[in-house]
Amino acid sequence: MNIGIVVFPGSNCDHDAWYAVSENLHQHAEFIWHDSASLGNVDAVILPGGFSYGDYLRCGAIAKFSPVMRAIRNFARDGGLVLGICNGFQVLTEAGLLPGALVRNDTLKFVCRTVALEVATSNSPFTHQAAKGQILHIPVAHGEGFYIADERTLDQLETDDRIAFRYRENPNGSMRHIAGILNEQRNVMGMMPHPERAADPLMGSTDGLFILQSLAGAAVQSPV
């Protein structure tokens, strides 16, 4: 299978994602430049972490207008699997592919450490290889990871079983301890923690592989 990794000017986890997919997951990875109007022949797409277009104005605010995002919208609409990590999650909310927004951490400090995440649902292409309630140790590294949405949206996410991960100890103020969510069709997921930074034994945890292996397993059966 073939996983596309989007590169915006300012992306800085694109090579980490590429390494995790090719060296740890043993799948084919390819970079997709932000001004590509087409995704080519990919089975899934990763929007990596970083600071797209410098993240001036708001995180992900400019990235949502890039040509590649039009292609990703179509890909997601047709059921293609899209995983947004950190800045990728921020881009997906700005683009309206996921509800809510990510704002400045309530501590006003950048947080960079490994956190314990609870898998809130295993019913998704991104989490089916983990068990509901399982604890994963995966690093976060962000200044704007405070997930915010109105009460109705939060209730809807819970009712629909669309909260993918919750923090055991909330590092940023996120409402209802949300660390990752799914869209209504369950083929788009955004998460603040970095699974690609917990994919190699050298990194101290390989819990990120639960997510990447789930994605790889699901992408094979994906209709796109």
């Binding site: 400045r104 501590t107 006003l108 405070f146 109105d150 103020g173």
Partner: peptide, 14 residues
């Protein structure tokens, strides 16, 4: 500006 319903930790700190 942030909507009134949205927490503004910068404002609170100031």
């Amino acid at each position: 500006a942030m909507k009134p319903s949205v927490l503004d930790p910068q404002g609170q700190t100031i």
